[in-house]
Structures are given as structure tokens and as C-alpha cells.
Nucleic acid binder design. Structure first.
Lengths: 188, 188
DNA sequence: GTTTAGATATATCAAATTGATATATCGCTT
DNA sequence: AAGCGATATATCAATTTGATATATCTAAAC
């Protein structure tokens, strides 16, 4: 059973690029990968302590401790890099989704079609906003695509864009079917 | 804080349609909604006890207890139906995704492009299989679309199909870019 | 100059969830 | 009669969330 902490891979992956504090890690997750992965302080800080004990990360040397505010910058070790690589190389991956919107749509038969139509509209609006952000992101990335790691970031962003575009197309179809259902109901 | 159990809505939604045991609920989740929502026995059984205490479900009258194997069939109450409806009517919804595949792709720069290409291929294969199943599902549903609840089931299935189709399109683009990156590397 | 608001930084906790394991019965085949 | 897979419930450690608490630093506002 033991060793099932997904957050470890996120932390090691981010630290493989640069030294970070727990707070920095949270910011990175929220900024760069939140559209397909989330993480909270409550999992990050305990995981950092645990990774340190396992020797996969170490506290980075502090420059100028003088009067500096207390913070713990972490750095990945060679063992950490190996662990990360081992995870990357097993191409199997668990993709777990929890779409509360779809759950509401699935159970829509319990309420009037208008209720589900509202759920679809809310989902559509949220998706439009997310899509707008990701497109901005992509436009910026395309200017620097030649640089080493940017291809990989670009790939995840285009995944998000393709997905969101498909969601929006579906939203329009779904809304049309629900309006039809609402119409049939009222004209009986 | 309290009352944050998403599994409650799944259970109530399923019970709104028919009486079920905890085991039945697990089977329903696995069969009908697993492509966008999962649930384990470890959350279902405790939730059923809790919902019973809150008066949202009751143990259904057993027919022919004679020699029948022990099982607990649950039934939704009027209060349960109201609770479910209240949840449906607030169109806000939390959609939480955990794509381990994308996480591996995001951190792909640490390994050779071939490693990420393998991850994309594995994701593509899994998606193709899922898509095949959902298309079968849709074909069967289209024959009975006139029936009450089937529209809502159909909507979630088409959501899955549209998403998976978009994933596959992206997989091909991603594979092409990764092959190019691998080629540039070897010809330096 | 000082209050105040927002960002930085870490820690902790109850509640929810996962994934595994344990236990036992039933129905079917060998 | 043995064995296997499905039915059925329960439990537990480990993980994760989301909230809350605490404290400092920075910059703007007054």
C-alpha cells in the first residue's frame, strides 16, 4: 500500500527546474498546472518534510541569513531526480476526474429541464473564461517555443485548449436539446 | 466546513431512481458514470449510515426475508429528494481533474522526448478504448432517447465522446511535435 | 509617520476519500 | 465436493482538501 503520494511527483518535478519554498510550489501549481492538477498547503508541507527524510530533497543553502525573514528553500537531490525519472518512465498514469457539473446533468431528470440548462450555461461560462486564459498563455509560449522546457508546457496548454473547445461545442448541443425538452414539456 | 461529502449527491441521485444496496451503488457508479466520477466502498458505506441518521435515506422494506442472504436495500426519503433538488438547483459546480498523464508530459523536459512520446501513446491507447465503449453506449441510448431520463444520460455520454475525440486529435499533434524534438536531438 | 491591506511563509486539523484488506455467503461449474 | 467468481458489508491507514491560525514584509493610502 504505502507510497502513494502523487504530490511528491509534482514537488520533485518543480524542484528539478529550480529551488523553491513550499509557498512557491503552491504558487507554481496554481499558476501553471491548476487546469489539470491541484494541490493544497495541507499536502505540500507534510510531503516536503517526508521527502527530506527520504533524502529526495534537501534544504538549500541560504544566502544572506542576515535579518532575512524565515523561509525554507528546498532543492532536489540526485536520488530525487532518479525517483522522478523512474516515475516518468512508467508510461501508465491514473487520470481521475470529478466533474460535478456532469453529475448534475446526469441526475437532471429529477428536476425541470431549465434547471439542467442553467447548469450547462454556468459550465459554458466557466469554460469560456478558462479558455481565454489558456489562449493567452499559448500565445506567449509560441514566442519562446524553441527553448528547452517550453515545448512540454506548450503541449499541456494545447491539451487544455482542445478540451475546452470541445466542451463549448458540446455545451451548445446540450443547450439546444434541453431547450427542446423544455418546449415539449410546456406545450403538452 | 462540515457537510462536504460529494458522494452523498451520487447516492441520493441514484436512489431517486430506484432502491439500491451499497454494493449496487458501487456497481452503478462503475458502470454509468465512472468516466467522470468515481467512488469507493470506503466512502459509500459510511455515507449511507450518515444519510440514514440525517433522515435522507431509509432501509427499504424487505420482501421475503426467509432465508434470503443479508443485505441492506436503501430508499430515498422526501427529505432526501429535497436535498438532492437543492443541490441540483445551485448551478455552481466544482470540476476537479487529476491528469497524471498531463503531469508527466508537463515534466517531460527532464527525460528524453521518447519517454514523453511513450506517455502520449499510452494515453492515446487508453482514450481509444474508452471512446469505443462510450460510442457503443451512445448507440444503444439513441434507440431509447424518447424515454424520460435517457436524455440526461445521453448528454453525459456525448460529453465524454466529444472530449475523447479532442484528446485523440491532440495526441496526434503532440506525438508529431515530440518526434520532431527527438529527431532534432539525434541529428545534432 | 502610521495605519491598513495584501502578499509572503509555514503549520495544523477535521472531514472526506482512496485503495487495500478481511470476511462470509451464494450460485455455478467441474 | 471442491473451487471460483460474484454478491455484500465493513474497516483501516494513508492521502488530500479546505479551512483556519499565526506572523512578517511591502507598498499604498491617509
Amino acid at each position: 500500500m504505502g507510497k502513494d503520494r502523487k504530490i511528491d511527483h509534482v514537488i520533485l518535478g518543480l524542484l528539478a527546474h529550480e529551488n523553491l519554498t513550499g509557498y512557491d510550489i503552491k504558487k507554481m501549481i496554481d499558476g501553471a498546472i491548476s487546469f489539470f492538477w491541484k494541490g493544497s498547503f495541507g499536502s505540500i508541507y507534510p510531503a516536503l518534510l517526508s521527502l527530506e527524510q527520504e533524502g529526495l530533497v534537501v534544504r538549500a543553502a541560504e544566502e544572506g541569513t542576515e535579518g532575512a525573514r524565515e523561509k525554507t528553500v528546498y532543492s532536489i537531490t540526485e536520488a530525487g531526480r532518479q525517483s522522478l525519472l523512474a516515475w516518468l518512465e512508467q508510461s501508465k498514469a491514473a487520470n481521475d476526474l470529478k466533474y460535478e457539473s456532469l453529475l448534475k446533468i446526469f441526475f437532471g431528470g429529477i428536476a425541470e429541464p431549465e434547471v439542467t440548462l442553467k447548469t450547462v450555461r454556468a459550465f459554458e461560462k466557466e469554460t469560456e473564461e478558462n479558455l481565454k486564459l489558456l489562449r493567452l498563455c499559448r500565445d506567449n509560449l509560441e514566442k519562446v517555443l524553441d527553448q528547452k522546457d517550453h515545448l512540454y508546457y506548450y503541449l499541456t496548454v494545447t491539451f487544455g485548449i482542445r478540451s475546452y473547445e470541445a466542451y463549448l461545442k458540446w455545451c451548445r448541443e446540450a443547450a439546444a436539446l434541453l431547450k427542446k425538452a423544455a418546449g415539449e414539456k410546456s406545450s403538452r
